[in-house]
Simulated scan of single mutants.
Amino acid sequence: MSTATTQPSVDQTAVEATVAAVTAQRELGQVTFTMQSQSTGGLTAKTQTGPMIQAGNPDESRLGKFTLHSDEPLGLLGTDSAVSPAEYLLKSLAGCYTATLAFLAAARDITLDEVRLTLGFETDLSGFLGIDETVRKGANQVTVDVEIDSASTSREQLEELVKALEATSPIRDTIANPVTVTTRLV
């Protein structure tokens, strides 16, 4: 399990302006994130950000701006030199949940004093290892426990916020629903 802690705050006016801009120019909502990855030996990989493309226009300033390294724990034949791909998936969900909560709270004029997430990625390796073909190769379940401190907000309002979070988070939607993944040799 991993835990993310933050004190999110988003300007409500900026949220409203973003919604208005995308409403007026729907193409601004068309965004593609890109990454470029290379094996660095064994089970390790080095991955860098590529350009973010919005409304068909690439933002080249993100090219190589951030570098992520991945490996597997010793018990999974890695060298434990970096975060595992499963942990990156959890980090992706945690980051999206944090941003989405901040966005939703700002839109509802809710002040979030602190947000803590505890995430888990449960899997049965017998599927991936080819031991049991009836076992899924990926996660059987992803769990997220959400703790929110907000002195001015009722428990009921926080429960509604978490329901909206599940319905709104793009990363949750991506991992909870079928999505086309195209892999091709170039």
Rank of each mutant, 00 (worst) to 15 (best):
181 V>W: 06
79 T>F: 06
183 T>K: 13
51 P>C: 04
177 N>V: 03
132 D>Q: 02
135 V>S: 03
183 T>D: 00
4 A>M: 06
109 D>S: 11
105 A>M: 01
158 L>N: 05
93 L>C: 04
42 G>Y: 03
46 K>L: 14
94 A>T: 07
11 D>E: 08
83 V>M: 11
164 A>H: 07
8 P>A: 04
163 K>E: 10
136 R>D: 07
97 Y>T: 09
115 V>P: 01
17 A>Y: 10
66 F>R: 13
57 N>W: 00
185 L>H: 07
171 I>F: 12
64 G>L: 10
180 T>D: 06
24 A>P: 13
140 N>Y: 00
159 E>Y: 08
120 G>W: 06
101 L>D: 04
37 S>R: 15
175 I>K: 03
55 A>W: 15
15 V>K: 14
109 D>M: 09
155 R>F: 09
18 T>C: 03
100 T>F: 06
96 C>A: 08
19 V>G: 00
131 I>C: 00
22 V>D: 03
100 T>N: 11
109 D>A: 07
86 A>M: 11
64 G>V: 02
124 D>T: 12
11 D>V: 08
7 Q>G: 05
19 V>R: 11
147 E>L: 07
78 G>V: 04
177 N>A: 06
66 F>C: 04
76 L>K: 14
35 M>W: 11
69 H>N: 11
114 E>R: 15
19 V>P: 02
